[in-house]
Design a protein around this nucleic acid. Structure first.
Lengths: 110, 110
DNA sequence: ATATTTGTTCGTAATTTCACGAACTACGAA
DNA sequence: TTCGTAGTTCGTGAAATTACGAACAAATAT
């Protein structure tokens, strides 16, 4: 049995989504989109403490990870969640996060 | 109003947890611990396609992020979830992931 | 006392991430 | 056509990530 197979595609996908969420700016954008359906990157630039080229990189990462999608609404770009993949992220990450916590045999860290 | 304040401590904490989950090996370990209460790093080394020093680094990252804790059980080390922080991760990430998906005005990506 | 087991730390190297400013593209408005 | 607005891409640099093997530390076993 190949060692590598222990890591399933689901582990990889879940990790990919988690990695995309692994930055405060990107977490902010995702939270916003989970609550407000869409946003414009211009508005984000005005609010966030980074310049537009940096924001563009973060949005690209979210796009590459499949979590958001952009639609041209000239001259701006409207962003919203990629619903299909967002559901997958909910499922994959939820499977891990929402598993009932077991009684562990490690001493508690107070 | 300071731009930087837009990013809350909760965004930062959630991103920190997500980042720690953002690698297939670490995702595997967390999934294992969410289902089986504890594990030994020696057993992981035998199963995972990385050498022990690399595994040690990944476990350290999970520890530094607060998601797991280790207890010496000489000559081995027993790892389990840090329940308190795991619950926090469930809450913070759940708040974002489990928000009901809104009807978006972006065209669907089929 | 010496060897074995278990895991961490160190040194190294390749790659990726993050951030910025400057330059560029695309579009609509004047 | 020329100008302004909205974003992306490019070039750069600093720092972090990922991985490995070698060396080390700590405890147990022989």
């Amino acid at each position: 049995m190949m060692k590598a197979e222990i890591i399933s595609n689901e582990h990889k996908k879940a990790a990919r989504y988690a990695k995309a969420m692994g930055h405060p700016i990107r977490m902010y954008v995702l939270e916003l989109l989970s609550k407000q359906s869409c946003c414009y990157s211009g508005d984000l630039t005005e609010i966030l403490p980074i310049v537009k080229s940096t924001l563009s990189q973060h949005l690209k990462e979210l796009k590459d990870a499949g979590l958001i999608q952009g639609e041209i609404e000239a001259p701006r770009i409207k962003y919203c969640l990629n619903k299909e993949n967002w559901k997958e992220a909910q499922t994959l990450l939820g499977n891990i996060l929402n598993y009932p916590i077991m009684l562990s045999s490690c001493q508690d860290d107070k």
